[in-house]
Design a protein around this nucleic acid. Sequence first.
DNA 1: CATATATTTATTTTT
DNA 2: TAAATATATG
Length: 873
Amino acid sequence: MTEPSKLPHHGVPEHQPAAGGIAARARAAAGPQYLNGLNPEQREAVETLDGPVLVLAGAGTGKTRVLTTRIAHILSQGRARPHEILSVTFTNKAAREMKLRLGQMLGQAVEGMPWLGTFHSIGGRILRIHAELVQLKSNFTVLDVDDQVRLLKQLLQAENIDDKRWPARMLAGLIDGWKNRGLAPSQVPSGEAAMFGNGKGGKLYASYQERLKILNAADFGDLLLENIRLFRENPDVLRQYQNRFKFILVDEYQDTNVAQYLWLRLLSQAPSRPGVPLSAIIPGAAGTTVIPGRIEDANPDVQSHIEESGDNEESLRDSGSALSAHPGMTETATPTASSPPKNICCVGDDDQSIYGWRGAEVDNILRFEHDFPGAKVIRLERNYRSTGHILAAASHLIAHNEGRLGKTLRTEDVDGEKVTVTGSWDSEEEARAIGEEIEELQRAGENLNDVAILVRASFQMREFEDRFVTLGLPYRVIGGPRFYERAEIRDALAYLRVINSPADDLAFERIVNVPKRGLGDATVQLLHDHARKRRMPLFEAARAVVETDELKPKARGALRDLILQFDRWRAQREVTAHTELAEIVLDESGYTEMWQKDRSADAAGRLDNLKELVRSMEEFENLQGFLEHISLVMDRDGDASDEAVSLMTLHSAKGLEFDNVFLPGWEEGLFPSQRTLDEQGRAGLEEERRLAHVGLTRARRRAKLYFATNRRIHGTWSTTIPSRFLDELPSANVEITESKGGSGWGGAGGYGPSRFDNVESFGSSYTTPGWQRAQANRNRSQGGRSGQARGGFEESQSSFSGGFSRNKRGPIVIEGELVAKSTGTVSEFSLADRVFHQKFGYGHVVKIDGNKLTIAFEKAGEKKVVDSFVERV
DNA sequence: CATATATTTATTTTT
DNA sequence: TAAATATATG
């Protein structure tokens, strides 16, 4: 592969062989100083460089430290150069953290770790290099959910599917799920695909993918899925990467989904060489089932994919590969032929797997030893974070889960304060109580930066915000809506996207009429019709239509102006810095003005955000580079400067720690979230429990739990009962306290929902939850339709045989043909043809100019129209 | 075509 | 409850 390595080879010794022998041992014992202070397990995790390693790192056991030290170790041992290490994390936050820590450990060498990043950013990066092999151009856009949904809506419309009954959002979710499982359109189980849109789910997925190619776009899932396809279809490309990455490190392995797993598997296989038995590479062939429990019934999807990648590997095998060991590598550095150099190290904690709903497969971590035979499993169980009581509570709670690898966290810290549980009358009182306790902590000299409130669902934050505002307590919301998800940012980006890639219909559509230019639905619809018929981008369609009389003069003028503006901006792009260009665009388009005129409360904030956006562009070399990264790595700007309480969801708290952690809302239905229970049943409950475990283990010194008896769910108040998780805490480490919020709960004996108490005790749940679950599932699988299952079934069958909707659209055309068609075709009309036009009626052709016709209409007079709008009669 | 008003409907977690 | 969407009106 020719990808230039942009890294300065920063003081990484290329010579010294890392002889695995006595010399190395001796040196290690003396110890490079970065090894100092590691406990024996950590040290083992760092120093076991060869072969697969799974590090089971419980909360607060120094996971990140192990990862970064391991990288430092690899580098300083000369086992690989920075660009030969693939290091993937799940979140940008984690990637940043690792870069930071590595930087501290190694000086500036972090610049030289080009392959340290999230799955998605690395996937995207590889994809851009080989874009043409997956029918994209290297400047493809990454679509966000909004774009996706808009696109799907159009497809649903084209298929004549009622988007009330089959919402685009739902389809987006389905497709995302398929992509998470590594399924291309042809691989989706047909039964599953047929469940959406009267059997059209699969077809919709396929045409969605087609559209993405035409739009030169990829969605999040594609960043991985298309990568997998790239590797499967181009063994030589795969081999380049297999050769390149001498070491692979994976953070939060418990959160990987099937696609990520497959991707890792492909990369972690040895660069193919003759003589490696297939069974050494393909886990399925080995038949060694190491792990107990539910791992046995492994996901069939995974199985089939493993086999596929096996085939792939086999086809690779014959072509000998030049294993280009770099100068510093000795024989011992490269494992023997019988054991491929799968130097993959995955770090994770099955007890912190909380992204199952996003397709994460806990099985991936549970099955590691099976997938990577000969793997070394190292457990990190010494917790350096929490005090005794907190750790005991967390451990005891998580012990209620089955299907875990099992770790016992221990600490040498003092017992500290007990975990407290506080009940309050309603959620307002809960917020009041927490507010007071925080003020108390503040008075006692606690730093507010060491205080966090972790909620299950983001709607809970509101009450705290309200309360803190009235108290004047500084707080900061972490992980709210992402910066680039704000409307104004996306509008601005849309302008830049259209400049950068004129075929970006979604971006164009977003801003044609923002600010208002008199180009409403009707105009856009017209452009769509033309674009579809002519198989051209909307922008081009607009260019054509402006030349005609299709539009009313007003709209036509506005559209012409817009096109001219874009032409001008595109020209300016060559001579103007991208930041300056952005300012010009925002100004000349009237976008800034639109917000300046807006007198609503948040208009000023939006203008600030726009400034912030322009400022953030400075970090990038050019517009292209900026656009490539924006959707992947832009997240909220934490002004961590001021002292403030942190307010966030449990999910976004993973990986963080605080002295004082407040955990409100421990109520049935909210904390074991009813929805998760309904959808995932037992597995869902266990995931919720892991979430609780994550919450507790964020705390260093104080963990405080709360529940309220009354909570407003959506508009209406409802009575709730304390979470079952509270019952699962060990009483020895917990203290029940009175709410300090004043009135309410203790006094009123009228806390009367005792009739619910017996309904919901653990396990005895067939009456309410079970029934609800069944119902919810039924509704869900039928796409939320209200009728009985049978009715829906018949309906979908009938429309199958009818083949009704195909006519509307004509045959699906493959991209190659589209391109051919859209460039310079000769009109199929001849002079004097009699034609019909929807709006202008009958007439005859008097002039032909490419696809533009001049027609003398009988009623409307002479008009210029586009040929796609008239038909010969 | 744009705006104001009525109605509906959905409410987790995120790369 | 509030946000998002449909409908009526200018």
